[in-house]
Amino acid sequence: MKIPLSQIAHGRSGDKGDTSNIGIIAFNEKHYPLLVREVTAERVKAHFGALIEGRVERFELPNLGALNFLCYGALGGGGTLSLRIDAQGKTLAAGLLGMEIDADAAEL
C-alpha cells in the first residue's frame, strides 16, 4: 500500500550555503529499514524536481533511526544570494514528509 512518509517519520531541514540538509527520522526504530529501502537519494531528488539543481547524497544514522540527505544546489545560491523565500531550506523536511512510499501492512 501507499502511505505518506509523515505516517512513520518526522524530520528537520536547514542549510549550509547552497546545500540543504534534510534529516528524516523514524518515529519508531522498527520502521528504519523501511526508510532505508524507500527513501533513496534518487527519490528525494525526483520528489523536488527543479528545486534541487545538483545531486542528492544520503547518509545513514541507524543509531537514531535516521537518514540525512545533502541536497546540493537546492537553495538558489543559498545565504544572502538566494532570491527564494525559503533560502535556508527550513520547509524542505515537511515537503519530503509528504512523499508517498510503499509499505506492506506487516511492516507497519
Partner: peptide, 8 residues
C-alpha cells in the same frame, strides 16, 4: 533527534 540532524 530533530536538532541533532539540523544543519548536519
Amino acid at each position: 533527534k530533530e536538532q541533532l540532524l539540523y544543519e548536519l
